[in-house]
Amino acid sequence: IFSIVVFGSIVNEGYVNRPDESEEHCIFNRNRNACNYGITVGVLAFLSCLLYLALDAYFPQISSVKDRKKAVLSDIGVSAFWAFLSFVGFCFLTNQWQASKEEDNPMNEGADAARAAITFSFFSIFTWAGQAFLAYQRFRLGADSALFSQDYMDPSQDSGMPYAPYTNEEDATDAVGTYQQPPPADAYDTETQGYQTQNY
């Protein structure tokens, strides 16, 4: 959303002209590079967001552990990269806006759009940095557990309990004493006394 505001503001109201000129100039100190930078970074950041949104939806279906690690590491790198580009964009647009001359825009057209682009460039720094931090936490969680394993299942969530519950030796002796007494040693002898074999 922030990237849409940045490039949308510049595209819609980022170019103005003086009454005596027919050619439009960038509202940021008549520096076309400033407008081009804001539009380019905004559009590419928006496309990156869509790409990683699709990757997050597809992530549970990735069976390879290496591919899962690569996906999370790329999320960290791309988010950190866009946080840096947002910081550069904020500084660049702010500097060029302050250097703008009043005579270049006597009607003060597009001032709100310029301020919106600068403001949301600033907000983008923290959102991308926060995204990089969350991706790093996800990577740490996956390294410390079995997040990157397709076959991992939390035993506490499985109602079938495929593993026997843990009991120590004291619990085992108590369980034998509580539920069933072992049969006496001569029980088998008394049963076999009544059985006789016959020879034919």
Rank of each mutant, 00 (worst) to 15 (best):
V65F: 02
N17T: 13
A54Y: 06
R18C: 09
L93C: 01
F46I: 02
D112F: 09
A57M: 12
E24H: 14
A117K: 10
I39N: 06
T173M: 11
R115I: 12
N199A: 14
Y195H: 14
Y37T: 07
P60S: 10
W97Q: 09
Y136F: 15
I39T: 06
D158W: 00
T167W: 04
I125V: 15
N105W: 03
Q98Y: 05
Y58T: 12
T119E: 09
D75A: 15
G130I: 06
E191W: 13
F2V: 00
A54E: 04
F148H: 02
A132M: 09
L55S: 13
S124Q: 12
I1W: 06
G110I: 01
N36I: 02
E102R: 05
T173V: 10
N108A: 15
G194Q: 06
M107H: 15
T167C: 07
A175V: 05
E109Q: 15
M107D: 14
A114I: 05
L134D: 10
V43R: 03
T119I: 10
A187R: 07
G130Q: 08
T178D: 09
S124R: 07
A187Y: 01
Y136S: 14
T192H: 11
G130E: 04
D171P: 00
D67L: 14
A71Y: 01
A116P: 03
K69M: 11
F123N: 06
A129E: 01
S74I: 02
F7K: 00
D189F: 04
E103N: 10
K101E: 11
A111T: 13
Y52C: 02
D144V: 01
F148L: 05
C49T: 13
Y52K: 13
T192S: 13
G130W: 04
P155W: 00
N33P: 00
T40W: 02
A80K: 04
E191V: 11
D171C: 06
F90Y: 15
A175E: 11
N95L: 06
Q61P: 00
T173E: 14
R68H: 01
T167Q: 15
K66Q: 11
R138I: 00
A185N: 08
Y166T: 07
N12E: 03
L55E: 12
S63E: 11
G77Y: 01
S48C: 11
W82K: 11
D56E: 09
N105T: 07
P183F: 01
N199W: 09
L141Y: 07
P184W: 00
S63A: 14
F139W: 13
N105Y: 09
A185M: 08
K70P: 00
Q96R: 12
D144M: 10
C26T: 07
V6N: 05
I4S: 05
N199D: 13
C49R: 04
N12R: 09
G142P: 02
I76H: 02
Q193C: 02
C35Y: 03
A114G: 09
W128A: 07
T94I: 00
N168E: 07
I125L: 07
V78P: 02
S159R: 07
G89C: 05
N31R: 11
C26W: 06
M161R: 13
Y166A: 04
A117S: 15
P162G: 09
Y195C: 12
Y37W: 13
A54Q: 06
T94P: 00
R30D: 10
F133L: 14
E191T: 04
S159M: 03
P60T: 08
P162M: 02
F92W: 12
V88R: 07
S86I: 06
T173Y: 10
G8Q: 00
D56L: 11
F84Q: 04
P19T: 08
Y58D: 09
S145Y: 08
